[in-house]
Amino acid sequence: MDIDPATHPTWHSAQVLRVREGRLMPAPQADQLAEETPIALEFNGISHATMLATPADLEDFALGFSLTEGIVASAHDIRGIELREECDGVVVEVEISSACAARLKERRRAMSGRTGCGLCGVETLPEVVRDVAPVAGAPALPLATVLAAMQALRERQPLHAATGATHAAAWADADGQLRYVREDVGRHNALDKLVGALARADIDAAQRAGSLIVVSSRASFEMVQKTAAAGVGMLAAVSAPTALAQRLSQRLGVGLMGFMRGNDATLYACPERISG
């Protein structure tokens, strides 16, 4: 089921006044603004989280979020995903297996009454950096492949080209070809959408380990965590990583590259993931 773009568009046209060389231009001009829409996730009828996101690829988003947040172990634990449009947003109804639902209920019960740490609705610090299996070894990726994948990403962001306000996450195979690209106003959302697309494509573990994800943002620890949860061996980012992201990359066996500008970049973790 797709969202009706008439009721929940991904961008909105507005009249703006531009400033050029320190002077306010007298005539308004048309500009495009990326939409932020409340997206509520429900699991087996129970509300779990509400995020502001771009209202596109929401089934991928729900599946990717479920996987990267540890709500389900695999795509097979998802029994169905339904989208319910409302005037002020979209409700994504996710039906998960009874075993996963029981674990989620227990997790919520364990958090009940505790003091929150204020991180994206997570209520305890152990919930922030979750246990994620390290990515198994794979042949190193040629440096030229990683650089080419990042450069190709710039041409595959139509919503960003229209609005200048969205992030993108893309999966490139071992040859550096971008196979899936997802955009969103939130960098985490874009990556969750991409992880969902990979899960639906049913790409095997060996292919994932020897591939890479490129993102148009900085590389915080959550981006590393989500990359490892997807079983992908390399994360390349336009901007810098954080120190926690670097340490987590080393522990999880995820190559981490940042500050990618043309043919320049910095490799922060797992140099064995890169050749050349």
Rank of each mutant, 00 (worst) to 15 (best):
D2L: 12
T7F: 00
T7D: 05
H8L: 08
T10Q: 11
R18Y: 01
R23V: 14
L24C: 04
P26S: 09
P28F: 04
P28T: 11
A34R: 09
E35L: 10
T37L: 08
P38K: 11
I39R: 11
F43S: 07
N44Q: 10
I46F: 13
I46Q: 15
S47H: 15
S47G: 15
T50K: 12
M51E: 12
M51I: 14
L52T: 10
L52A: 12
P55G: 12
A56T: 10
A56P: 01
D57K: 12
L58V: 04
F61G: 00
L63K: 05
L63A: 14
F65R: 12
F65I: 00
E69D: 15
G70S: 12
V72H: 08
S74E: 14
H76C: 11
I78A: 08
R79W: 09
E86P: 00
G89E: 05
V90K: 11
V91Y: 05
V91A: 14
I96N: 13
S98A: 15
S98Y: 06
E106H: 14
R107S: 14
R109M: 14
M111W: 12
R114M: 05
T115C: 02
G118H: 07
T124P: 00
V128F: 13
D131P: 02
P134R: 10
P134A: 07
P134E: 10
V135F: 08
A140F: 01
P142W: 06
L143E: 13
A144Q: 10
T145Q: 06
M150Y: 00
Q151A: 15
L153M: 14
R154C: 01
H167E: 08
H167T: 01
H167P: 00
A168Q: 08
A168H: 05
A174C: 10
D175A: 14
G176K: 08
Q177V: 10
R179I: 06
Y180M: 10
D184L: 06
D184V: 02
G186F: 07
R187Q: 11
H188N: 13
L194I: 04
V195N: 03
V195A: 07
G196V: 04
R200E: 15
R200Q: 15
D202A: 15
R208D: 01
S211G: 02
I213L: 13
E222C: 02
V224K: 07
G231Q: 07
G233D: 03
A236R: 04
A237N: 03
V238G: 01
A240F: 07
Q246K: 13
Q246W: 05
L248I: 02
Q250F: 00
R251P: 00
R251C: 03
M257I: 13
G258D: 04
M260H: 03
G262Q: 11
A265L: 14
A265C: 13
A265Q: 03
A265S: 10
L267T: 03
A269G: 07
C270I: 05
E272C: 04
E272D: 12
R273M: 03
S275P: 00
